[in-house]
Nucleic acid binder design. Structure first.
Lengths: 258, 258
DNA sequence: GCTTGCCCCTCACGCGACGTGAGGCCGTAG
DNA sequence: CTACGGCCTCACGTCGCGTGAGGGGCAAGC
């Protein structure tokens, strides 16, 4: 229990996954001053020092500048609520940016010349689509105004809701195609880890991704569980063929795992 | 149609959401040299330049150093489609990471002592608890594979598959509770943006989050669309009551938006 | 014609969070 | 006694810009 053994720099660096120079730096700026030194002047880190380092690294990962980290750790009257809320808004902005960039990537993919065709000129609207989400002032409108105000919400709602009847019809058609393909494969006895099954799973993933939310392969497996587990949904999916939900879920996992 | 209009720096900066200085910098280091200059020496960006800029910004956001970006973009073997598709998945992963960090911060905020009354100084132990849900090892699995490797991976693997029969029964019971509650509210004519509806939506979000995948409120709205849009699912959900899918979707959006 | 703005230009220094040597001390092992 | 690995302290380099300073171009209004 009494692990009051002290560590020297290289050990600490290895344990924490940072460089020795970083520890020197943190010492220089007073962010992490080792509790003691050996007579030879070598830095000697205690377990408490390691805990402090852990806190430092967590905050650094959150994007907090070192100066702020120092204050937050040294000042007992530090206002955590404000700090955390600021981190929250920063993270929320980052999330928005990432999501918007995904849309931008999609826009760029859509603008790609199809099969050897030459690139067409783009309309201004297409160009702005390319950079949708890159402009900080846009989500300033969203975040600063509490997310819920009319304009900003509608802008974001373009993805999160408000599909038209025609949109739904298109979605249903696309979904139907994929489900039919899956049902055919299932009936033909195709293995869930085969190339065809993976292709179907990937099509399904991209469908979700385009229509609803960023759907990485990993998240897709979670969705597969949801499909498979939710009997209500499974029963209906199975109208396409006995056990289709299970089959598709397995294919999705194979697609993500390989 | 022939939109071969060129843009000057400030326009490009505004569109792309970067500073003019940044564009100057990219010009200096040869990363993005505008195709032409006016006789006055002003930079003049074409649509192709904008496309290149988009690539630059995406890669930058993904943490690629500018020097590498330049090399990869100048490489004659560069394939737009492959690059864009790879970026799609990387962005999706990043979105997941950001979402999980957001939830960790939210959890920390929720764990804060309520209202300045008893808001004395926090003990180091309390602070540690605050960040309990925020173990960097999880994210590092993706970034540099530092701290934890096996454990973190297993944690995530456990989530993505392999539920037992008993697990499913428990899930179904929990889901049934929530759906019943929602059906009751719907029948009682409760508004979708009321406190009760939001509570149900939040319970649903946490259900998904615990059982299937990290489910932020924003992603939850996407799932709501999926619920609402997927007639097959909607029909079944509606066995709980007429129009339940639509009602729940609206409640979810209200819960995310407010 | 001249000023007023607004946009543009080129230096050029500053900054945060380290990286990267240079040059030297400490202690143990051969 | 020397080699070696780990530690130390300067101190300058790097990356991706921010932030002025000092000045030109050009259309609009006085």
């Amino acid at each position: 229990m009494a692990r009051d053994h002290t560590h020297q720099v290289k050990e600490v660096a290895r344990i924490a996954g940072v460089s020795v120079r970083t520890l020197h730096h943190y010492d220089e700026i007073g962010l992490l001053v080792p509790s003691s030194r050996t007579r030879a002047g070598h830095r000697s880190y205690t377990t408490d020092d390691l805990l402090r380092l852990q806190q430092i690294l967590i905050r650094r990962e959150l994007g907090m500048p070192l100066r702020e980290i120092k204050r937050s750790l040294d000042d007992p009257a530090f206002d955590w609520r404000i700090a955390l809320q600021r981190q929250r808004t920063q993270l929320a902005e980052r999330a928005e940016r990432t999501a918007s960039m995904l849309r931008a990537v999609d826009a760029a993919l859509a603008a790609l010349p199809t099969e050897g065709e030459t690139m067409k000129e783009m309309t201004p609207a297409q160009i702005t689509d390319l950079f949708d989400g890159f402009d900080p002032s846009r989500h300033d409108a969203e975040t600063h105004q509490r997310w819920g105000d009319a304009d900003a919400y509608r802008e974001s709602a373009r993805r999160t809701s408000g599909y038209t009847r025609a949109d739904w019809d298109r979605y249903k058609a696309e979904a139907h195609d994929i489900m039919s393909a899956a049902a055919q494969l299932l009936q033909a006895g195709a293995p869930t880890d085969g190339d065809e099954a993976r292709a179907v799973a990937e099509r399904h993933r991209l469908l979700i991704d385009r229509w609803f939310f960023p759907c990485s392969p990993v998240l897709h497996t979670g969705l597969a569980d949801l499909y498979e587990g939710d009997v209500r949904f499974g029963q209906n999916l199975d109208t396409y063929g006995q056990g289709l939900a299970t089959w598709l879920a397995a294919a999705i996992r194979a697609n993500a795992g390989g």
